[in-house]
Nucleic acid binder design. Structure first.
Lengths: 369, 369
DNA sequence: GCACGTCCGGTAAGCGCTTACTTGGGCTGC
DNA sequence: GCAGCCCAAGTAAGCGCTTACCGGACGTGC
């Protein structure tokens, strides 16, 4: 059977091209990489042979020889499964990291790089070694939201460039994050000054998350500056997830706690959970309790009421992380190493804070009802 | 400065390990890959050296030598930007492919593989060549929803194993998709037999999408079998996107078309757009017009009303695609090549079809109002 | 005690590229 | 007209692994 189907014909190598063009493999390589000054006719013959054979250089060989894989590893933290709930199988938090990755990918593409994406379960014992394995397939690593302890991070950074997202810069790594403080202060001022709310609560994210901490302390600052009551603490923790947010509210209500006038959530996902739990108990948002999120993920505007949130250009986060890593790979390491890069954020007023659906104008609390 | 920071210390090679353990590089390789029967003490010394140096083999070198990269390329179609609308920046369709990828990744991980994910814009001129470049960095390729024309697909499949999602199997490629026909027949029967609706419309997906076609014809079959009116055609096309679904409804209303009793959407994303457009015109769902989706993406249950849809185990789609590709890479190519694999689907009754919010029990149309 | 079989582990040949070094043909300049 | 240059193109080394092959140490059977 000559009409062979499927991978039986190995892809052509540079030797095949050289033979077809009647030149040496070095010439082929030079033409393809625009090195030296190949004579016009040499160049033509090579290019024609390449086109005829459909030659594309093998990535592994190229990587080994050129010491550049044109691949960056991306490590995303996989949320652990929680108690069975209506959110169980929804892959919480999926959207946010994925949009960041999208941003990276768009920029990476411009530099001819690809992304090797791996999710790790923090509970899993050898998460660290799996990240190191990824590293050996890549030219650099981008770590989402704290997936490695400081020791291992340092060991990793000693071997190749590392950029973290929503972490903190170290001597050997750069970090990229949204302007948490600015965004949260805007939320706080809006709720306090524009709407006149006097009791707030902060529904925190993961324990120890730098983002959650920064957002929380900015809110606390504004609240105390305005003499407003702020509820927070272990019982106010949503872990960035809808199920977590809903569970927290359920527990609080079950405990008979009087809810504050506004609940400020560490991110949109947990705000979604809060909205559900409140709706479940017949508590009106924003009339009884206002709710705000953070991140402005796409679904935020599809909720009822539409969620007031803080927009970070999520894709920019990814794009900036990649660009930073790229410059480190390029060699200008010391220039950006240790840098902490904050990207601007912007308050997006919708309905859940109490603003008017149409004009998004604030309504003072006392005007309502 | 001895306290060197950052990538200055190259990662250790197998030579370093061999030297430290006092053996040859071949022995190191054998221990690491469990080849031959190394003597216990040889093995111990190697393993200790590996641990001390933190050695992990370089991916490129391993790939070149072993002819296995342990990487599979995944190509996702990037939605083109549409007219400015409230959906413009929301990265339509992002969730669905991403969940499929997640399914792949979980299985890939068990085999030590990683995913190299690349999105392509179909408009872009060299989409094909970019996919071929990806191919040379991978051991096999998984193509989402028709990103390559048949000629190129064939050429690609000649070089390495290829699996498509929601496409169609060819002599040289396998295909994985949800059971569109079964799912859609269930929707149709539910709307017609349980709810008693007599006029339906089918809001199609991309032109030529095998999924959209299969769903449409299953619906048409059931409709004609029941003697029910089915509206479809160019003006009923949502292109799988919220913006597309909303725009279609807007155009139909503007044209003064009388809406059917139920709109069956080719996927959930476009159903979201339809819900928005209907709400915008004060048309009640499901009381005036019922709406159904397909895919059962996570947000489907967060909508008001909650969206009735057809669940496919999205992650299974990805997992199955990977397993299929993996067996092709393994060598048992001819076994699965050309196979078309359909995964089960299941109707999920929620509110948007007219079922009762609590019990999800169908209410006959005449009972409403 | 010698021939042979077994089994570890070392040596070296690639895998398919990039690139430093070398060769040689055609110019220039005196 | 010949030495000296310049530059295109070929030769070969090497990237860090895997593995075929081979050599040597030991054990067995007669």
């Amino acid at each position: 059977m000559s009409s062979e189907v499927g991978p039986g014909s190995q892809p052509p190598t540079i030797y095949d091209v050289a033979r077809a063009a009647g030149v040496s493999i070095a010439s082929v390589s030079r033409v393809l990489n625009a090195q030296g000054n190949p004579r016009a006719d040499t160049k033509d013959r090579v290019l024609q042979a390449v086109a005829e054979l459909g030659f594309v250089p093998d990535g592994a060989a190229r990587a080994l020889s050129a010491r550049l894989k044109e691949v960056v590893g991306v490590v995303v933290r996989r949320p652990q499964w929680h108690e069975t709930s209506m959110f169980t199988d929804e892959d919480e938090n999926l959207q946010f990291p994925d949009m960041i990755n999208r941003g990276m990918e768009i920029v990476a593409q411009r530099h001819g790089f690809d992304l090797l994406v791996r999710t790790v379960d923090l509970e899993e014992p050898d998460a660290g070694s799996r990240i190191f394995a990824l590293a050996r397939k890549s030219d650099g690593i981008i770590l989402h939201d704290r997936v490695l302890d400081p020791d291992q991070l340092d060991r990793l950074a000693r071997q190749l460039p590392v950029v973290t997202l929503a972490g903190q810069a170290t001597r050997s790594t750069a970090n990229v994050h949204g302007d948490n403080e600015g965004g949260m202060r805007a939320v706080a001022r809006h709720l306090i000054a524009d709407h006149g709310y006097r009791t707030l609560a902060y529904l925190a994210g993961h324990e120890g998350s730098p983002d959650s901490l920064a957002r929380g302390s900015a809110l606390a600052d504004e609240a105390s500056a305005a003499g407003v009551t702020l509820l927070e603490g272990e019982e106010w923790r949503g872990r960035y997830q809808a199920a977590g947010g809903a569970a927290a509210i359920e527990r609080l209500i079950a405990a008979g706690v009087t809810l504050p006038r506004a609940i400020v959530c560490a991110n949109d996902q947990s705000a979604i959970g809060v909205l559900h739990a409140l709706a479940h108990h017949g508590i009106a948002v924003p009339d009884d309790v206002a709710v705000t999120g953070f991140d402005d993920i796409p679904v935020a505007r599809h909720l009822r009421p539409q969620l007031t949130s803080v927009r970070q250009s999520i894709q920019d986060l990814g794009a900036t992380a990649f660009e930073t890593l790229y410059s480190m790979i390029g060699g200008a390491r010391s220039a950006v190493r240790g840098q902490d890069i904050a990207l601007p954020t912007q308050l997006v007023r919708r309905q859940s804070c109490g603003c008017d659906p149409q004009s998004a104008a604030p309504r003072k609390a006392e005007e309502a009802g």
